[in-house]
Amino acid sequence: MKSGVRLGGPALAWLCFFILAPLGLVLLISFAQRGIYGGIQWDFGAGNYSRLFSPETLLIVWDSLRLAFFTAVVCVFLGLLSAWAMATASERRRPWLLGLIALPFLTNLIIRVYAVKSVVAANGPLPFLLTLLGIEFDPFALTANSWLVAYGMVSSYLPFAVLPLYGAFEKFDFTLVEAAQDLGAGPWKIFGQVIVPALRGPILGAFLLVFIPCLGEYVIPDLLGGAKSMLLGNLITDQFLKARDWPFGAAVSVGMMGLLVLTGLLLRVLRRTK
């Protein structure tokens, strides 16, 4: 017991100091007021939270939820099919495929976004191809738009879905597929009526794994969406680094955490029923 304290104590103290205390502080700040010069004035009230329900903020929340939901659904769908193909590939190929999926996942996000940008940049291959095909386009709209954001989000978060789903397929009983085949089910029917129900738990888990980081994503919409798309991540970052309205930024992030907890609970209920 004494050795436990001696070995684990430092890490415990570290996490209390750099996670617990800062999170508590954010909660506290979210009830404070913005000072005249951008500092924090410690007069407590719920004013910041009522600002969350203003039409502008609600629109941002709605847009962020939509993007996170879209990304998570697409990632889980594509991830499920890819994981299925990976798990049934020959045993020699499996580790290679796993490595190929994991490598971009561990690659710096900025590099990946830069790579996407270099495809659509003025001297990149896409504008070149479009010109070659005689398709007219607006070069400025091409380098920053919501399609690009969607592509960036899905390709960045896809491994979050593929890797756990692959793990689930490793434990999946493939004789079920065989049985369904023998009974005359086509491949789509097997997918929809055998695989999806059997992997219900991991599917919901993968959805949450993508949804959580997506809701607060800052870099991808910022670099690929241009100034047009305002999302929760940009809103929070702006309050802290530009507008210097920390209390409101803190309230937005507490609200965001609330939304995430709510989503988690909702999925848990979905998992239990039937």
Partner: peptide, 18 residues
């Protein structure tokens, strides 16, 4: 566990405020 599940941005701003 919390530090694994926490959205990056919340962790970032919490540390900045701290």
């Amino acid at each position: 566990f919390v530090s694994l599940a926490l959205p990056e941005i919340v962790f970032a701003l919490a540390l900045l405020s701290w």
